Computed example of a mutant assay.
Amino acid sequence: MSDELKISAEKRTEFGKGAARRIRRADKVPAVLYGHGTDPVHLSLPGHDTMLALRHTNAVLTLDVEGEEHLALAKDVQRDPVRRFIEHVDLVIVRKGEKVVVDVTVHVEGEAAMETFVSVELTELSVEAEATNIPEVITVSVEGLEAGTQITAGQLELPQGVSLAIDAEALVINITQAVSEAALEAELAEAEAEAGIEQDEPEAPAEEPAEAESTEE
Rank of each mutant, 00 (worst) to 15 (best):
A168M: 12
T57R: 15
T123I: 08
G16T: 11
V29E: 00
T38S: 13
G161E: 06
L33Y: 12
V41N: 02
T152M: 12
L125P: 00
A193C: 05
A189C: 12
I138K: 00
R84T: 11
A113P: 03
R79V: 09
T50V: 03
R12P: 05
A178F: 00
E207W: 08
M114P: 13
N133S: 15
E194C: 04
A153C: 09
A59E: 00
D167L: 07
E128M: 09
E157W: 06
D200Q: 14
E115L: 12
T62E: 15
A112C: 02
K17T: 15
E157V: 14
V106R: 00
V77S: 01
L188R: 15
E208Y: 05
L145W: 06
P30I: 02
L184C: 11
V106N: 00
T139C: 03
A204L: 13
L156C: 06
V32T: 12
A31G: 05
G67W: 02
A204R: 09
T149N: 11
I134C: 07
E216S: 15
E157P: 05
G97V: 03
P209E: 14
K96M: 09
T123E: 11
T139S: 11
S126D: 04
V162T: 12
G37W: 04
I197E: 08
P46N: 10
A204H: 07
P46W: 07
V172S: 01
G37K: 08
E98G: 10
L5E: 07
A182E: 15
A74C: 08
G154V: 11
D3P: 03
H88E: 08
G154N: 12
E130I: 09
V94W: 01
A165L: 05
V104Q: 00
Y34K: 03
K11S: 12
G196E: 01
A153N: 05
T38Q: 14
A59C: 05
V120H: 00
V92N: 13
V102C: 06
F85P: 03
L61Q: 00
A183N: 09
L5Y: 06
A191I: 11
I93V: 13
E10L: 12
E98F: 09
E109Y: 09
L125D: 03
R79C: 05
M1V: 14
Q78G: 08
S2G: 08
E216N: 13
A193R: 13
